[in-house]
Simulated assay, not measured.
Amino acid sequence: MHNGRLLTLVGGIFGLVGLVLLCVTVALAASAASFLASAQQTDGTVVELTEETSTTRNRDGFYRHTTVWYSTVEFTVDGRQYSFRSSHGSSPPAYAKGESIPVAYDPDNPYDARIASFWSAFIGPMITGGLGVLFTPIGTILFLKGRRSTGRRT
């Protein structure tokens, strides 16, 4: 396979992955924004921090332990208590046990609740968007270089 064709192929794959990531970003951001726009807000309390440790082995044979903390939050709506576990963990813990934090919940289904912070709502779109913004131009540049290189050889 010629160098130009390889660059075209790799560039096309990178560009396509970047565009897919950007589409996923739009969908995730729209979903989070839609939920927050229709959600009610209240204060909740962090009642528990759950520690999850994962172990991976690197190329040198050494084991690496990674610990992530997830918050369990309780809140009250119309005299009834609800709780949920945050979907995003952090290290160190983002909140302390007993800390009061804002909660957004679906008024028709309070079991559907999330921490009402920009970071919690938009971390997914920020990650996929960042990768999409990185992959798309790199893919485009590689694709165009490959096409130019292939065009000179024929």
Rank of each mutant, 00 (worst) to 15 (best):
L6I: 15
T56S: 15
V47N: 10
E48H: 13
T72H: 02
S38I: 06
A29Y: 09
S83H: 14
L144W: 03
V77Y: 02
P92K: 03
V20N: 03
L134T: 10
A121D: 02
L7A: 11
V24G: 06
T66W: 06
R64F: 05
L28K: 04
L9F: 13
L9G: 12
V10L: 13
L22V: 06
Q40L: 08
G124W: 11
G151T: 15
T140G: 03
S120K: 08
P137G: 05
E74G: 12
S71P: 06
A27N: 14
R64L: 13
L21S: 11
T42F: 00
G139F: 00
G79D: 09
T53L: 07
R80S: 13
T154P: 12
V17G: 00
Y63G: 10
A104M: 06
Q40E: 14
C23F: 15
F35H: 01
N3F: 15
R153T: 12
F118R: 02
G44R: 06
F84P: 00
H65P: 02
D106R: 03
F62P: 00
V73N: 04
F118W: 05
N109Y: 11
F62M: 08
T128L: 06
G132D: 04
V17L: 08
A94H: 10
T45H: 02
V47H: 07
G61A: 03
V68G: 08
V26I: 11
D43K: 15
F35N: 00
G61H: 01
S87L: 10
A96R: 14
L9V: 10
T72D: 07
I141V: 12
F135E: 03
T8N: 07
S83T: 13
F84W: 02
A96K: 12
S90P: 04
A30C: 11
L22N: 07
T136P: 01
E51C: 07
A121V: 05
E48L: 15
G130N: 07
N58F: 11
F122R: 03
Y95S: 03
F143G: 03
S90E: 14
I141Q: 02
R114M: 04
E74A: 12
P107C: 09
S34I: 04
V46P: 00
P92D: 01
P125W: 00
A32C: 01
Y70L: 01
G139D: 01
A104E: 05
E74I: 10
Y63L: 06
R64I: 09
F14C: 01
Y105W: 10
N58C: 10
V46I: 01
I127P: 04
R85I: 04
T136E: 02
V77K: 02
Q81T: 15
F75R: 01
V46K: 06
Y70H: 05
K97E: 11
F75Q: 00
F143Q: 04
G79V: 10
V73M: 03
A121W: 01
L49G: 00
A121K: 02
R5D: 13
R5K: 15
S117E: 07
T25R: 08
R59S: 15
P137Y: 11
P107E: 07
E99S: 13
S87C: 05
Q41S: 08
A121Y: 00
G132F: 14
A37Q: 13
R153P: 09
F118P: 03
G61E: 00
H88G: 08
F143Y: 14
P92T: 02
E48V: 13
T136N: 06
I13H: 04
G12A: 10
T50S: 15
L6D: 07
S54A: 15
G12F: 07
F62D: 12
S34Q: 10
S86K: 01
T128P: 01
